[in-house]
Design a protein around this nucleic acid. Structure first.
Lengths: 195, 195
DNA sequence: ACCTGAACACCGTTCAAGT
DNA sequence: ACCTGAACACCGTTCAAGT
């Protein structure tokens, strides 16, 4: 009986959700999300495009899974940068880690800020900025923490976006502008907290 | 002879570049750039999709023209907000005008920050931030103007992006966070300029 | 249970043909 | 000179059929 069942065994899985997400992430990093096709992702893991629908409801669902995966790595990078430092140093280190994550993987950074990819990413998106929020709370106290975190993450997101999009066209040192800006915001936050 | 030429006159133009750009802009504002199809744009101006190629080389070229058109309006809005005010007031007014432009037209704001639309937009993109640069130069002096402008425009772009993308999820007043942030950066810039 | 080829609707784009 | 229908390659997605 069992032998019979085994001989009638269904098709053996050639891949997994994890494999597919990893392949898609690599392809996005290399080519950008706009150039990603399901036929290519499928080929990279040794199956055909229709089979992807056994694991993900749609292309959007796959991209959401990639985004959630990346956001976990992002959160880890931010947390490692700030732990065990005094607040002001943690702040500048976290800022530098944020920028490095984005500039090293511009296409991945763009992916995690695609507004249409929200469902799975919403909680991961919030969680990814928790390390930054904790550092800023230590810096300015709980009363201004939320506004200060929004100030800081807005600046970091805007700077990295403009840098990877090539929107700093006026010459000058981008590194210098970043260092100056982080200093300006840090000073402004500390002053506002004591005011 | 002339009559003959006139009677053989070619098809009369049903539309113009300007009409097409305006129609595309309205449709993007309503539906977003991802939902825009050339067949729909063509229908909106009374022609068929292939005829668009008599006026624009590609969909990308049309989007670049829309982007350049919008950036001109954006520059005007920023300039009007700051003119004739003392530097610090011009700064906060310009910041508010920037935010209002983006939050009132989120899909248009996203369009002008599409990194793949660069060719026609590059110069217009630079020009659109000239009013901000002038205000900031008046505020901090020429030595720090470039870095200060990058700090400010990075923050503004990041804040507006996160706001329209729904990334401020923790409750609290977004208006308050914006006012606080503009104040923090203004104070930080003024202090750094005198340092 | 997972995989597949064939097919569908839709898109940007090309082109020969019309006036 | 501008417009058009037909067609092409490509895409996400569906589905009946295979093991």
């Amino acid at each position: 009986m069992q032998l019979c069942v085994l001989s009638m065994s269904p098709a053996i899985a050639k891949t997994s959700e994890k494999d597919i997400v990893a392949a898609a992430r690599r392809m996005i990093r290399a080519l950008g999300v706009d150039a990603l096709t399901l036929r290519d992702v499928a080929e990279a893991v040794g199956i055909r495009a229709p089979s992807l629908y056994k694991r993900f409801d749609s292309k959007s669902a796959l991209l959401q899974a990639v985004k959630a995966d990346v956001l976990t790595r992002f959160e880890t990078a931010l947390r490692q940068a700030g732990t065990g430092q005094p607040p002001a140093l943690a702040f500048t280190r976290m800022a530098a880690a944020y920028r490095e994550f984005g500039t090293r993987r511009p296409e991945i950074y763009r992916l995690i800020h695609r507004p249409e990819l929200k469902a799975e990413g919403l909680e991961a998106e919030r969680a990814s900025l928790v390390p930054a929020f904790e550092i800023i709370t230590a810096l300015v106290g709980p009363a201004h923490a939320l506004a200060a975190a929004r100030c800081t993450t807005s600046f970091l997101h805007g700077f990295v976006s403009m840098e990877i999009d090539g929107n700093f066209q006026q010459g000058g040192s981008t590194d210098e502008a970043f260092t100056f800006s982080v200093y300006v915001i840090l000073q402004g936050l500390v002053n506002s907290a004591s005011a």
